[in-house]
Amino acid sequence: MEIPYTSKPRPDTGVYNAKIGIWLFLASEVMLFGGLFSAYVLLRVGAAPGEWPHGWLNVGLGTLNTLILALSAITTLLAWVACKVGQFGKFKFFHACTLALALTFLCVKMYEYHDKWIHYEIKLVDGKFADGHFEGAVYVDKAANKELEEHSFRGMAFSEVSGGVTNNYELVSVTLEGRIVADEKDLMDLRAQKHIEHGKVTIERSQIKHMENYGPWHNTFLAIYFTLTGLHALHILGGSIVIGYLWGPGRKMWKKDPERFTNRIEVSGLFWHFVDLVWIFLFPVLYLM
């Protein structure tokens, strides 16, 4: 006996197997992101007044990604419709569009991550804070005993305790493209500050109390930002692999069993739309609020 309803719907439920399967899976995904969103709410509500960052993320890039993902959701739908009406050429075109858009989304996301990665906050000995993107650092190579300038930072953080020596390179000074503020709270709400003067700031090692980039360890906002968008990006990656498979080697099925292939496109499309749906909430929650 064969497994029934693999491509035809079961009369009393009206759906074929994989469709039930994907909706069940999406239901569990709703709860997965639900857990993370409830974490977001609790961390945000529980944050001390003035300690939740606003305007740390680039709204322009976020909007761009929103539109890219919405467009890719539309092209997956059209790819499915193309299969449904039997126009395989159109399917290939639209699915290629989806794949390209997905990869563009990931590239934009990567750029944003990198931007946070090279963004440093330096707590100074006098209690002020220097904040900005990393420009360069001067080290003394202790083996050769000569100074050299580098444009990437050795190690991810610097504190008085570690002394600033990494693999025999001793830190002399750090240059940031940014500014110095009196209080850490001045860095929290970038939206309220209309024009922020940026410039090159060079800080001697003796002035540095603690130096740390905007990684997930920096504060709970960045922690939830990286976790939520990271998990979302993993979904995009997984979806891209599936879409790429169906576009590439998986398309052989079109010749053998076009109905089943169409169902596969529909099911993967449902997953893709869900990923878009998550982003529809991620964008305002992280970028706008």
Partner: peptide, 18 residues
């Protein structure tokens, strides 16, 4: 899934020092 979400966050706490 909510426990999976929690596990991911505890993983971040342990690995990425969040």
């Amino acid at each position: 899934p909510p426990l999976e979400a929690a596990a991911v966050m505890q993983l971040m706490d342990n690995v990425a020092h969040t």
